[in-house]
């Protein structure tokens, strides 16, 4: 087995160009899926799904004008302060605390993958790169993986019936090429590599951002202690996960499977017992 591969998506340098979305569709021949103008900032593609394996989120945020919150090194701090004391005509006061977050979402390729655990056909499997991939020639479209993903990633394709999601460009990895999205990303917001190395790089990165006063930077999905045993594709975020449509504390359903089975078997026993008991009265 090769080294486990992964993505580190550093949203602090994402410019929202959507090259990842397009490159992914081009390479993987994912169909277009027009949603019309959503009015949700520059996001007109909604979310990950069967027809979208990379998705760029756009979040326009007015943040407090309070000088304390502004990153100390930025000119915005001084500008904001001076604006506040200026003659009051200033329409920029709240613009100084404005930010536009962009983030490219993707399948997390979880260590404990809900979709993989749920799949009754074996269509989903773990590759030699540690990624989770659907085999389209096996999938029978039962849809169980869809409700088993804590991130709402995998979905059934209309008219096709099977489920689809990011393969981390399994075909490219086999040929020693990086995934299409990572290659297309102009600012290296999407980084591909050995997961261990990416985690170290990400830790250094977040440390560096903190040193520069960007306290809001935090890693998401880098720890193996989380509810899915760590993400194969993790993120550096600048706000809480839910702002980006990411669950704050995802837990793979399989963690509860023992309880689930215990309850189901218990209930089955009660059912059997209850049925039997209903005949007891008659015997009396």
């Amino acid at each position: 087995m090769s080294e486990r591969k992964g993505f580190f998506t550093d949203t602090s340098v994402c410019i929202g160009c959507k090259a990842c979305e397009v490159a992914c569709k081009e390479w993987n021949q994912v169909p277009a899926d027009p949603q019309g103008l959503t009015g949700n900032s520059y996001d007109n593609s909604g979310e990950l799904g069967a027809n979208r394996w990379r998705h760029v989120a756009f979040i326009e945020q007015k943040v407090s004008v309070g000088v304390e919150e502004a990153p100390p090194e930025s000119f915005a701090r001084e500008a904001a302060r001076q604006s506040l004391v200026s003659d009051g005509l200033d329409p920029h006061e709240d613009a100084d605390g404005f930010r536009w977050l962009m983030s490219s979402d993707v399948c997390k390729h979880c260590t404990e993958a809900g979709c993989l655990d749920a799949c009754p056909t074996g269509a989903l499997f773990r590759t030699e790169f540690g990624t989770v991939v659907v085999q389209p020639d096996i999938c029978n479209g039962c849809g169980y993986c869809v409700v088993s993903c804590p991130f709402g990633v995998i979905d059934q394709r209309e008219g096709d019936g099977r489920v689809w999601k990011c393969t981390m460009c399994y075909d490219r990895l086999k040929d020693d090429m990086e995934p299409a999205c990572a290659q297309a990303c102009p600012t290296d917001s999407i980084q591909f590599g050995d997961l261990d190395e990416l985690r170290e790089r990400a830790a250094r990165r977040v440390e560096r951002l903190h040193e520069r006063g960007r306290e809001e930077a935090r890693l998401y999905g880098d720890s193996e202690d989380d509810g899915v045993g760590g993400f194969g594709a993790f993120f550096l975020l600048l706000d809480e996960p839910e702002t980006y449509r990411l669950p704050p504390d995802p837990v793979v359903p399989t963690r509860r499977t023992p309880e689930v089975w215990a309850a189901a078997l218990g209930a089955a026993a009660v059912l059997a017992g209850g049925v039997a008991a209903s005949f007891l009265r008659g015997r009396r």
Binding site: V22, A32, D33, P34, L37, N44
Partner: peptide, 9 residues
Amino acid sequence: PFLAELQPE
């Protein structure tokens, strides 16, 4: 189509 859907209008 891949570009048109991203800025459709």
